[in-house]
Write a protein that binds this DNA or RNA. Sequence first.
DNA 1: TGCAATAGGTACTTTAAAGTGCCTGTCCCC
DNA 2: GGGGACAGGCACTTTAAAGTACCTATTGCA
Lengths: 115, 115
Amino acid sequence: MVKKYNIPVEAALEVIGGKWKVVILCHLIKGTKRTSELKRSMPTITQKMLTQQLRELEADGVIERKIYQQIPPKVEYSLTEYGWSLKGILDSLCAWGEKHIERNYDDKSLVLVEG
Amino acid sequence: MVKKYNIPVEAALEVIGGKWKVVILCHLIKGTKRTSELKRSMPTITQKMLTQQLRELEADGVIERKIYQQIPPKVEYSLTEYGWSLKGILDSLCAWGEKHIERNYDDKSLVLVEG
DNA sequence: TGCAATAGGTACTTTAAAGTGCCTGTCCCC
DNA sequence: GGGGACAGGCACTTTAAAGTACCTATTGCA
């Protein structure tokens, strides 16, 4: 039985919905990142959630995982060509988030960590 | 204590995140809608979730609630000016969802209800 | 007279998302 | 030889999101 959508946008939400995926993609849009770099960029994500979300994004074809056969392990994540088709959405979301903060808080350093 | 964001896009997700808000906004972008119209457009949402999400969107200033003092009750929802600043994001999300379905399914009528 | 339509409210329960804690293995450095 | 960096896996638990069920009120209509 195939998943049914009442409106096509639900298909997009299935790929980038949830608490972390958009954030991860916003980091990867700035360039290829190692697992540990991503983790440092997202201090509150757990190792498990990071791996899980990366796996799902990979399964949906929007990111790519490159393993370097070395010790200690090195794994890099980057957007696929298909993932780059999300760039417009991600850029707009980031910009809107900034404007939203400016609109709602006089001093945005109050809401942005290390801001 | 104020909520802290590690990256501004998190502020956007707080407003339009979750299972229903983007879908609701995608309907309202087509024009003002009554509660019952929204409900009919989203057959699987429950009355409670619809009301709850509408209240939150209203509290965030992206939609407006207009009550007509009549019996039976009539309530209309529409985007506020601030809500319209989301138009670009919503349009792109809808378009991406459509392309994603076309990319992943040969026959999109299989995944779109009443499609 | 009894039901449908309208737009909810509220208490409770379920389920899915997210988080915790502990485990692997190898190499380098102190 | 103990600890950290690296990239996870796995079992379990917690919490937040979502869903169910039942309640309000008024009017018109069959």
